[in-house]
């Protein structure tokens, strides 16, 4: 019997939340209390496969953010299929979480939350994206340090986009880096370090790279050049399989964090070279 290992109270939560999920994502590939894959050390209460590239898995529990979810997060994030995970709980459990501490943690770690009240009304309290694309807010904020205020604002906007669309989020981060290069080139042209700031982004980076003035920053400039080439491929590449979709998510995440790191490095190096990045939006 499905949900037979759950108490009557949690069985009601499982049934109501499943009905909500079916309305939202359909019932394709529905499995109850079955494993997604042997490589994942967690068996969800149920999961659906709304599309070829997507799995929505739900864990029904009275405890917000169980140890099993915590420990399975790595397996889920590295699985060859993007998996979005929700925890479904009774509404009173959600409301009784002291200072919303566990809920905050669950959300920050990329999980969504569904609640079910005593009347059986299910509601998504926090939406989620595939776990693989989650960048911890605390990590993101810590990576921002060292950037100017306007760069921080631009990256925060890219982060918001990234959470719902990894490709666009990465694209936005790449545009920030592009804008930074544009700003440096304009100043370098104005002070006669380089002959022109016209041309493609690759040409601009090459000009800076070749200039003796930027010799000691060639490491960073080389990094920016490969990043620009890479992120364009990654962001625009349409996956043909679930495996490719999972890979794209992981690559976009790596790309986004690399872009952030390079922006910081570029800003520090150029400051040392006497350049102030004023305008970074291309």
């Amino acid at each position: 019997m499905p949900f037979d290992t759950l108490s009557p109270r949690l069985k009601a939560v499982a049934t109501a939340s499943l009905s909500l999920c079916r309305n939202r994502w359909g019932h394709q590939g529905l499995r109850k209390e079955e494993p997604i894959d042997g490589s994942i050390s967690w068996r969800p209460t149920y999961f659906l496969k709304p599309s070829r590239f997507e799995i929505i898995a739900v864990e029904v529990d009275d405890k917000i953010y169980t140890e099993v979810l915590k420990s399975a997060a790595h397996d889920i994030g590295n699985f060859d299929h993007p998996i979005t995970v929700y925890q479904a709980s009774p509404l009173d459990v959600f409301q009784n979480d002291p200072r919303m501490a566990r809920i905050g943690l669950l959300r920050d770690h990329g999980f969504g939350i569904i609640t079910v009240d005593d009347e059986g009304n299910a509601r998504i309290q926090h939406t989620a994206q595939p776990l693989a694309q989650n960048i911890l807010p605390t990590r993101f904020e810590s990576d921002l340090s060292g950037l100017t205020q306007s760069l921080k604002i631009a990256f925060r906007a890219a982060y918001v986009t990234f959470q719902t669309n990894v490709g666009q989020g990465l694209q936005q981060a790449g545009q920030i880096v592009e804008g930074m290069i544009g700003s440096i080139c304009s100043q370098a042209e104005a002070n006669g370090t380089i002959a022109t700031s016209a041309g493609s982004l690759a040409d601009k980076i090459d000009l800076l790279y070749q200039s003796n003035h930027f010799r000691q920053y060639r490491g960073t400039l080389g990094g920016v050049r490969s990043f620009v080439r890479e992120f364009r491929n990654t962001a625009s590449h349409a996956p043909r399989s679930a495996k490719e979709a999972a890979e794209k998510i992981r690559n976009c995440k790596d790309g986004f964090l690399t872009g952030l790191r390079l922006a910081k490095q570029l800003r520090e190096d150029m400051q040392r070279a006497g350049y102030i990045i004023r305008q970074f939006v291309p």
Binding site: S7, K63, E67, V68
Partner: peptide, 14 residues
């Protein structure tokens, strides 16, 4: 089978 107790045991078994 209370969640709290089960969670502790699950963590130990893991």
């Amino acid at each position: 089978f209370r969640s709290e107790e089960m969670d502790t045991l699950t963590a130990s078994i893991k």
